[in-house]
Design a protein around this nucleic acid. Structure first.
Lengths: 346, 346
DNA sequence: TGATTTACGTAGAACGGTGCACAAACGGCG
DNA sequence: CGCCGTTTGTGCACCGTTCTACGTAAATCA
């Protein structure tokens, strides 16, 4: 049984081979493959038997030239971001059921690379793309979205027309964090945000800054509110952390835009002899697996990435099916309390 | 300037559009694209100008039907394994220079999924594939490798004929870990290994077990040697960890096949009131970023994943260029000492 | 100068599918 | 029995490239 797509002559098994074997036309085989209209049960079984026997596999490349490829492109910022695996799992769970394949592009958070990947996916004739946590601007996204059904996850563009967006409600998430700290008696609560070259409200960090500001204001703590812009993740943050911890105005509590920053800060604080949460309480964002480790035990906001992935994939399918009006979905995050927020009552 | 591959009529810009615009034949444009032999400087600039002006982008799908796609497939076990990002970076650094694109498949460590992904890559007419840390058997790999140039990273198949392998020298890595523990005065050193349904020497864990055994024997500690098989990563390991830590035969030191297990064990040990490294010294494997956190400070064996990726990509290119004889490369790992191995002399 | 080589460019058949337009077969009905 | 509408299956143009085979003009050689 040649299930490697190559028959005994070493020639590739194509749709024509199958047609000849089944004694039908090429068009008939194609119809069966796409389960198109107008195939009798008899024909279908005949063709499927031949396909099975010959181990035929349709060429995606050839398909892509006219019809669908049944493949979706998923662009992720990078492989090491703790929030992505769950989003990916969510997407996968939906696409698998629908019989679609996924092709992943890893973006490394560089605009140039991201553009290249999107174009690559278009060139490869993906049926649709999901873009997760991109740095790209709304105009660029709109222009790509005209050419290929697009869903964007983790990037706030609530007015986008050509594509859908799925986001955690980052404002609410930040409010949850700050309110929890206030409830523990904190007043002097600072925030660590992502210091971007060019501030863009579409990114998650500014959204969380807004939530922070709101919650502080509502609690009458506006005078304490201050946002510390941290250098981007790949730069050395050691100095910034040091400055923060040794400052005479060191806050009593910290809300951190991401676990990516919260975890190193928490580590540095303990190393410096501070007690967490007594000297410094910390709440992060993303609920990454590391935060859950007992030695870290970092309270964090959970985005339910899996659900975001699922919802995103579903939106993409409905868009591929012809929906034109954009959907902009917010998903409510939850607070995961841990030791960095309060000392458990033993 | 229409740089979106669609001209003002809304029609797709194809090689024919470019040919017409430049006033040359389709074949000529194709030659320029592939920088094939027999193009004058004049022709080349003429064509390149048109390409630029029209914003033409060749269709990978159409290309795949006859020629190369200039795209490589990279199959990764999963997105959350700490060792993969560095391997990926290594691969990327080489392919980028060569002007090749990468398409990633995420395998989730399920054989069925992995097979599907490899076939998908063949269907998509990748020019070659790199498979990282697969569960698949040697025969399966050989059969795929006949159809597409293949390099396997992190899977020991030293006798494979059809594909190349790049591996960390896992035996030596384990020896390094055990010798370091012996040097710190430990005798009762146990090992935690990955408990596979079907033991396969191609996997990394058994290789490390062999290195452990050797080092123990060479030091005359064979009587102490014992290997504890842990359930695979996705199952709850809490019980296994508990049993290990509360056993009356608790060893004084532990060599762990992966940080994936070492980190939870270290956490549990400290939670249980043990002192690391005094009551229990631990050395892990992979040197994952979490191991480096001060609060964790887990000694670990570093595989230099980036180098493995680079070497793997280079091997793939040379194989695509026609090399037939297989290469099986071992890369020497190094020990990264941290607090879980020895208390620093202050 | 004629013969041969070299360089450049072109025509047109692949490649492996899709999908439209149409033919054939079938059954129901007046 | 002839007419008509509905299935079911087929022929063929097409998708956007590559690549072989070949034509032509210029350059080199004897």
């Amino acid at each position: 049984m040649a299930d490697d797509g190559i028959n005994e002559d070493g020639a590739r098994v194509t749709i024509r081979t199958v047609a000849a074997d089944a004694g039908v036309s090429v068009a008939a085989v194609s119809k069966v493959l796409r389960n198109a209209y107008g195939v009798s049960e008899a024909l279908r079984t005949k063709v499927e038997t031949s396909i099975e026997r010959l181990g035929y596999r349709p060429s995606v490349a050839a398909r892509g030239m006219r019809g669908q490829t049944f493949t979706l492109g998923v662009m992720l910022v990078g492989i090491d971001n703790p929030f992505l695996p769950s989003v990916y799992r969510g997407i996968e769970s939906v696409t698998e059921k629908a019989g679609y394949k996924i092709m992943v592009g890893l973006g490394a958070a560089r605009k140039e690379t991201e553009v290249r990947l999107i174009e690559q996916m278009i060139d490869n004739r993906m049926d649709g793309i999901i873009i997760v946590a991109t740095q790209l601007g709304g105009e660029v996204l709109e222009s790509y979205a005209q050419k290929i059904p697009t869903v964007v996850i983790g990037h706030h563009e609530a007015t986008a027309q050509q594509f859908d967006t799925i986001n955690s409600d980052d404002v609410t998430g930040a409010e949850l964090a700050v309110e929890a700290l206030i409830k523990r008696g904190h007043k002097d609560i600072a925030m660590v945000a992502l210091g971007l070259r060019r501030k863009n409200m579409a990114d998650v960090s500014p959204q969380r800054e807004r939530g922070y500001q709101r919650a502080m204001q509502r609690a009458g703590l506006a005078e304490y509110a201050r946002i510390i812009q941290f250098p981007t993740a790949d730069l050395p943050r050691g100095e910034a952390i040091n400055a923060l911890l040794t400052s005479p105005q060191r806050p009593s509590a910290l809300f951190c835009w991401s676990d990516l920053d919260a975890i190193p800060i928490l580590n540095a604080a303990v190393e410096a002899g501070l007690s967490v949460p007594d000297d410094l309480a910390i709440v992060g964002y993303d609920n990454s697996p590391v935060a859950a480790l007992p030695l870290i035990s970092l309270a964090s906001i959970d985005q339910d990435g899996e659900r975001m992935g699922r919802v995103g994939a579903e939106a993409l399918f409905s868009r591929m099916a012809g929906r034109k009006v954009p959907e902009h979905i917010l998903i409510r995050p939850t607070l995961i309390p841990r030791r960095s927020l309060y000392r458990p009552t033993v």
